[in-house]
Design a protein around this nucleic acid. Structure first.
Length: 875
RNA sequence: GGACGAUUAGCUCAGCUGGUAGAGCAUUCGCUUGACGUGCGAAGGGUCACAGGUUCGAGUCCUGUAUCGUCCACCA
């Protein structure tokens, strides 16, 4: 069923058709098959607001490689796709759209807002899915999930209630990170710190008893409105006399105590700290220890609230300006210092985060972190590369309680209700109608939603049906490998791990394959603001999905960032085209012949060689994949195909096709098919489209390459002797070509070749090959020749003469030979020195010593051959 | 302040458990060699950041230094 293939590979024409073919064949779909071993990956669910970017392209390429490989190996392979509701990001987008219409959230109300959000999801949620399909991702689309679908939402409620009942979820007034722009709390992980220029305002707070004043410094003077103490170190001799006294807070007039607390660093600033429990996490702790009042002076938008007296209503920065001016006017400002300091900002919108006390829901982390640390340490989850375990442990060991409530509408609403009559809190899987304590029916649900990551944390089991005990959950969980970037280890990976142990009693996955960022050609992070992002879809349009995948897989080592450039993709496209044309050659040559994908019994030297090389590659690639060395695996396939199969074996096969000897030609055909097919199979996980397209054209059994069996290396196909013999032949050919190139002899100009060698049988077997590939008009092989005035070439196993006297510049030839001789002698001295070294002989392993001996023998022979050549030329 | 990563050919990067350095691109020369010029053949180019150490032997292991980068912490 071979068909005419276009001269150049045209991915655009092929890819959609092949993808449809796969979908129709149902090859991506997995059902529980107890007799098989499962291999499962859950996709890191992309945001519904998102567009496919290079990060996704890399992440999904790696996942698809693993999935396709395991599928071919015979595993029952499931790749669960899906999308994330991304509460904060999506809500921001919807708000932005509403703003353009002049609408506000509050204006349209919760219900109408959610309606818009779901519309948004319907409209854009599918976009990224279709983009993943363009990449060739072999996800089981029948099992596509969404973090807010019915099942995932049920899992979220179940987890919330369970943790609440275990006392691991609580609600309380704590200091949290507040984003004044998103108007919600965010978790510690969602705050990014960066260095900013700022000021250090030195202030004087007068002692209430009139005995003087105390100097302190602050970077946020406006928070003084909420000061409820001043602290010094208990051992600080300078301030001993003040401990227990009070100061009168400037501008406010409040009398606040001077307390002693070891939190204060004596050497920093003046050694005195103003304490604002409502707006600084450390101050909050100090406040707890000293039983200080907490005065919140900030509104949701960051402006000063009613507790700020005459400053109330002012936006944060304006309040700062006015307060500093007033302090200065009233003599409380001593000096202003310029400093650099770190400022936290919201990872979504970049707005400066304000620490702020408010009532929120938290997950108590310590009891959850404990097993998540111990069991990962015991090896239940492996990070690749391993060094990321350290990062994980460090984070887990220092984890604080997780603030999970968000003042957003788009998300899982917290399953907590409050009784308006008795104040009871009811946490329940289903909506309660009466208060279990007082029987009142006046209940209202908590207004807040949960952190997006609360639902993503459950993804590996919520997508498989949990909390129900489904056959899928039983079979596919724990999943096999999680593939993701190092940037979301804290947000997601760590939380999945403790959630898996807590709710399933088992880890969510056995391995975590961590990859780095895809950067631009200059090494910069791709970002919207820089405008340096490269759209994977444009790349696919231009070069094809296989070329993109190949580029991303090649040279990408786990955990390391990579640079992306057009040149690299173009090189990958060239590789695809090369494969395409090799396939055309094979098809052209098997057409009209009865050729099966089976090795013939009669194998020539070059046949055994290529089969053996292929065998080695099949083993190496499989080993690399087992170790998650995907970049190395694909590199080996590239080298084998281009450098061995295409540049040598196909060239050799041409000789046989054109020899007129139908037997030898007919024997080469199935070998071409066999090696090509096997390599296409090995390459399929990396370049699924082109491999399928070609595979379909070649003689094959089965419906699709993607469900064909993964090639196995076997001892039967290992021919080390053939590899060695071919190495000698290829070396001779290269040496002749090299000499001819140096002398500028075009290939069209043939010449006789005399090969003097101690292993004539080997060169006899390769004589036709040498003749053709070294452009010989005729070739003679023997143990010695006398060819006066010929160009002489010395290889490790042969001395080759080309009678081209008229082209030989005797002086140049002598110079060259002498140069080679000098270099060979030098190498020989070095090699012998090694053997003369007693400790090398006694301590190095036998095979290495043996290799060194052979090396000396070869070099000795080479020196001898060179010497005789020089002699002959001089004669 | 702490942790980690990188430093290899002009550029971008490979190099697994230590055995005298590789690829792609770029450069130079030659080639209509009936699959492919998105190609073929050939060449040049590296004291593997630096300094010590372990070893018969180190790009590869250890220690330190320098430069660049990332993450964590967050002292007001």
């Amino acid at each position: 069923m071979s068909k005419e293939l276009a001269k150049a590979y045209e991915p655009g024409e092929v890819e959609d058709r092949i993808y449809d073919f796969w979908l129709k064949g149902g090859y991506f779909h997995a059902e529980v098959e107890p007799e098989k071993k499962p291999y499962t990956i859950v996709i890191p669910p992309p945001n519904i607001t998102g567009q496919l970017h290079m990060g996704h392209a890399l992440d999904n390429t790696l996942q698809d490689i693993l999935i396709r490989w395991r599928r071919m190996q015979g595993y029952c392979t499931l790749w669960v796709p899906g999308t994330d509701h991304a509460s904060i990001a999506t809500e921001a987008k919807i708000m932005e759209a509403m703003r353009k219409e002049g609408l506000t959230k509050e204006g349209i109300g919760r219900e109408a807002f959610l309606e818009r959000a779901w519309d948004w999801k319907e409209k854009f949620g599918g976009r990224i899915v279709s983009q993943l399909k363009k990449m060739g991702s072999s996800c089981d689309w029948d099992r596509e999930r969404f973090t807010m679908d019915e099942g995932c939402s049920r899992a979220v409620r179940e987890v919330f209630v369970r943790l609440y009942e275990k006392g691991l979820i609580y609600r309380g007034e704590r200091i949290i990170n507040w984003c004044p722009h998103c108007k919600t709390s965010i978790s510690d992980a969602e705050v990014e710190f960066s260095e900013h220029d700022g000021h250090f305002w030195h202030l004087r707070y007068p002692l209430t008893d009139g005995s003087g004043s105390i100097e302190l410094a602050t970077t946020r003077p406006e928070t003084m409105l909420g000061d409820t103490a001043v602290a010094v170190h208990p051992d600080d001799e300078r301030y001993q006399k003040y401990i227990g006294k009070t100061v009168t807070l400037p501008l406010v007039g409040r009398e606040i105590p001077i307390v002693a607390d070891t939190y204060v660093e004596q050497d920093f600033g003046t050694g005195v700290v103003k304490i604002t429990p409502a707006h600084d996490p450390n101050d909050f702790e100090v406040g707890l220890r000293h039983n200080l009042p907490v005065i919140n002076v900030m509104n949701e938008d960051g402006s000063i609230n009613e507790n700020g007296g005459k400053y109330s209503g002012l936006p944060g920065l304006e309040a700062r300006r006015r307060i500093v001016a007033d302090l200065e006017e009233q003599g409380y400002l001593i000096k202003v210092e310029d400093i650099k300091h770190n400022v936290g900002s919201c990872y979504r919108c970049g707005t400066t985060v304000e620490p702020r006390v408010s009532k929120q829901w938290f997950v108590k982390m310590e009891p959850l972190a404990k097993p998540a640390i111990d069991r990962v340490r015991d090896g239940e989850v492996h990070f690749i590369p391993e060094r990321f375990e350290k990062i994980y442990f460090h984070w887990m060991e220092n984890i604080k309680d997780w603030c999970i409530s968000r003042q957003l509408w788009w998300g899982h609403r917290i399953p907590a209700w409050y009784c308006e009559d008795c104040g009871e809190t009811i946490v329940s899987r289903e909506e309660p109608h009466t208060c279990p304590k007082c029987g009142s029916s006046h209940l209202h649900q908590d207004e807040d939603t949960l952190d997006t990551w609360f639902s993503s944390a459950l993804w590996p089991f919520s997508t498989l049906g949990w909390p129900d005990k489904t056959p899928e959950l039983d079979y596919f969980y724990p999943t096999s490998t999680l593939v993701t970037g190092y940037d979301i280890i804290f947000f997601w990976v760590a939380r999945m791990i403790f959630s898996g142990f807590e709710h399933m009693g088992q880890p969510p996955f056995q391995n975590v394959l961590i990859h780095g960022l895809v950067r631009d050609a200059q090494g910069r992070k791709m970002s919207k603001s820089l405008g340096n992002g490269i759209d994977p879809l444009e790349i696919i349009e231009k070069y094809g999905a296989d070329a993109l995948r190949f580029t991303l897989a090649t040279g990408n080592s786990p955990g390391n960032d990579m640079r992306f450039s057009d040149e690299k993709v173009s090189a990958s496209r060239n590789f695809a085209n090369k494969i395409w044309n090799a396939a055309r050659f094979i098809l052209m040559n098997i057409e009209g012949h009865d050729v099966k994908n089976e090795l013939p019994d009669d194998l020539l030297l070059e046949d055994r060689w290529i089969i053996s090389e292929f065998n080695g590659v099949a083993k190496a690639v499989t080993d690399n994949l087992e170790k998650f060395e995907l970049g190395m695996a694909v590199q080996k396939l590239y080298d084998f195909l281009w450098d061995h199969f295409f540049d040598w074996y196909i060239e050799i096969a041409k000789i046989r096709m054109q020899s007129g000897d139908e037997t030898t030609a007919q024997n080469a055909r199935p070998i071409l098919v066999w090696v090509m097919t096997g390599t296409l199979q090995l390459l399929h996980p990396f370049m699924p489209f082109i491999t399928e397209e070609i595979w379909q054209s070649l003689p094959h059994s089965g419906e699709s390459i993607m469900v064909s069996p993964w090639p196995q290396a076997t001892a039967e196909h290992d021919f080390p002797k053939a590899e060695e013999e071919m190495r000698l032949i290829m070396e001779a050919i290269r040496a002749v070509r090299n000499r001819r190139a140096e002398m500028n002899v075009p290939p069209s100009r043939k010449a006789s070749l005399y090969v003097a060698t101690a292993v004539p049988e080997t060169f006899q077997k390769g004589s036709a090959i040498i003749a053709k590939l070294a452009y010989a008009s005729e070739i003679e092989i023997g143990d010695a020749f006398e060819v006066p005035g010929a160009v002489t070439i010395v290889t490790s196993a042969a001395k080759i003469y080309i009678p081209m006297e008229e082209l030989v510049d005797k002086q140049a030839e002598l110079a060259r030979l002498n140069k080679e001789l000098e270099s060979a002698r030098k190498q020989l001295v070095g090699a012998q020195a090694k053997l003369n070294n007693e400790s090398f002989i006694s301590k190095a392993p036998a095979n290495i010593v043996e290799g060194a001996k052979q090396n000396v023998a070869k070099l000795t022979e080479r020196v001898k051959l060179l010497e005789s050549s020089i002699e002959a030329l001089n004669a």
